[in-house]
Amino acid sequence: MSDSIDRETVEQVARLACIDLPASRVDETAKQLAEILEYVGQLEQVSLPDDVEPFFGATESVNAIRKDELSPSVARPDILSNAPDSDGEFYQVPPVF
């Protein structure tokens, strides 16, 4: 694990996360992320048995199965009512290119 994080990495992470990060905030963000990464770096000290399985969920249950039955879904106008822009049938977004 690396405890430091440079400007380029922060800019790359912001791009991946789709968050516009002004140049004036890059250094401060790098410092904040580095602080947390330094703290979580202590996980390196934990010695793990070779065969330890990761625990990804707080439950051991797997494969919740249900009958495939039709039921009413939410009405289109209700869903679109929270959209910033729609034509009444579809979401509308700015040009892709």
Partner: peptide
């Protein structure tokens, strides 16, 4: 280094 390791430590905590 991060997510997998943390999830293994999570197993140890459990």
């Amino acid at each position: 280094a991060y997510y997998l390791k943390a999830s293994k430590v999570r197993r140890m905590i459990k």
